[in-house]
Amino acid sequence: MSRIPVSRVPSLLPELTRCAAAPAQPGSELYIYEAVRAGRGLAVSTSALEVRLYDRFGLSPVHTLKHHAGQITQIRARGDRLLSSSADGQIALWDLRQPAARPAMVFTSADPILSFDLSTDDTMLVGGTQLNSSYAAKILFWDVRAAGAPARAFEDSHSDDVTQIQCCPSASKQFLSGSTDGLLCTFDPTQPDEDDALLYVANTGASVARCGYFGPESQFIYAQSDMETLQLWTVEATQLADFGDVREISQSGVPVDYIVKCEYDAASQRLYMVAGSNDGSIRLLHVGVSSMEHIQDLSSGHTDIVRAFDWDLHDGWAVSGGEDGRLTWWSQADQAQAPSTSAGARRPAAAGSGATSRRFAPY
């Protein structure tokens, strides 16, 4: 049996059902890398070095954004603004209110940009780069009001690719970085010196693929590795849990081949893990401090590895995309079809009387 205790709790969330599916581009062999809510629609990055915009509910194509000359490494949305980073060393900012042939602003780097985030006060853009030929992996800072080269850089905290940048949702002047060197670093960017700015360092012992804040005060950090391991930490670099290789839970009857992402729901104060199987099935699990709860499987949406998953727990829907080039819309089981853009928001039904006791409570 797996050393990760896994129980089956299907009532924790309303059930999601496949409502629509469509190829990102009929007749092509595109990979879908990421999908995010953007403006009133959906933005999808693909292996064609472009970002495609879709109607959020009908999955019909709306517009295509072409600018980058290298692989798109990340996309993020903030209101009607969309940002995309690329191995071409650029972060493009697009104004979705006026779809155009060119981005509204372009922020540049001498090195490929692997990750980035925008501070919660919308004033600072932080990017992480690939290790360059001079063996420098940089964290770069731009003033959002000034396109072009970065205003400053940190070069000493990481010794390998900076794979993740996450600005703290509850503190506009704090951010987290994760790297292939296995380190999670928490910074205060108001400090001009890198040594003074570095607050805490956690060594996960594994190449960090994704990391992020969770908890009501963003006091915890999750870190998943490219070896499919998952760890939980405090922001002060105290380890709370090491689940090891999450593929071990397959021994408990929940087939898992990889982690897609983790998702924190602030309303319920719960951390969820979205995992997948090589056949395209998606597993939804609730993550506790020492165990996991298997909520639901999303099947028949994909035939290959799922890379993208954007989940709106408040309105009860999700969209997924993957190496089969397909987009799939999932919605609450009590909805016969995806709601129209004019429909009012729907809140998921209550999870049941025992839901509160399953919130993440490490102490």
Results as ranks from 00 to 15, higher is better:
Ala202Pro: 03
Cys262Gln: 01
Asp304Arg: 14
Val162His: 00
Cys185Asp: 05
Leu118Asn: 12
Leu65Thr: 03
Thr108Ser: 15
Arg283Leu: 07
Ser157Asn: 06
Val260Phe: 02
Gly322Trp: 11
Arg346Glu: 11
Thr204Ala: 04
Ile305Val: 13
Trp94Phe: 14
Ala110Ile: 13
Ser7Tyr: 08
Glu228Asn: 13
Ala21Trp: 06
Asp188Glu: 06
Leu232Val: 03
Phe360Cys: 01
Asp80Tyr: 13
Leu327Cys: 10
Arg76Met: 15
Leu313Ile: 09
Asp88Ile: 04
Ala206Trp: 07
Tyr33Lys: 12
Met273Ala: 05
Ala110Trp: 15
Ser340Glu: 11
Asp188Ile: 01
Ala24Trp: 04
Trp94Met: 05
Thr234Asp: 09
Arg283Pro: 03
Ser225Ala: 04
Gln335Leu: 15
Asp334Glu: 12
Val260Leu: 06
Ile249Val: 14
Asp310Phe: 10
Leu327Ala: 09
Arg97Ile: 14
Gly352Trp: 07
Pro348Ser: 10
Thr46Asn: 03
Ala350Asp: 14
Ala241Cys: 09
Asp80Glu: 11
Ala43Trp: 02
Met227Val: 07
Arg52Asp: 02
Gln296Ile: 04
Val246Asn: 03
Phe154Leu: 10
His314Ser: 12
Gly148Ala: 07
Leu114Lys: 03
Ser172Tyr: 08
Ser268Phe: 06
Leu96Met: 10
Glu323Phe: 14
Tyr33Thr: 12
Asp160Trp: 05
Ala69Val: 15
Gln219His: 10
Ser119Arg: 08
Thr108His: 09
Ser179Ile: 02
Val9Arg: 10
Gly352Phe: 07
Glu29Ser: 11
Asp310Gln: 12
Met227Leu: 08
Ala308His: 04
Val162Leu: 01
Trp94Lys: 04
Asp193Arg: 13
Ser353Leu: 12
Leu199Ser: 14
Arg145Pro: 07
Ala275Arg: 01
Arg283Cys: 11
Gln332Glu: 08
Tyr272Thr: 00
Phe154Gly: 03
Val208Glu: 01
Ala209Lys: 12
Tyr213Pro: 01
Arg3Gly: 12
Pro99Leu: 06
Gln98Tyr: 13
Leu30Phe: 13
Trp317Asn: 04
His294Lys: 09
Leu176Glu: 00
Val162Lys: 00
Leu240His: 02
Ser353Gln: 15
Gly288Glu: 13
Val306Asn: 04
Arg78Pro: 03
Val9Tyr: 15
Gln335Ala: 13
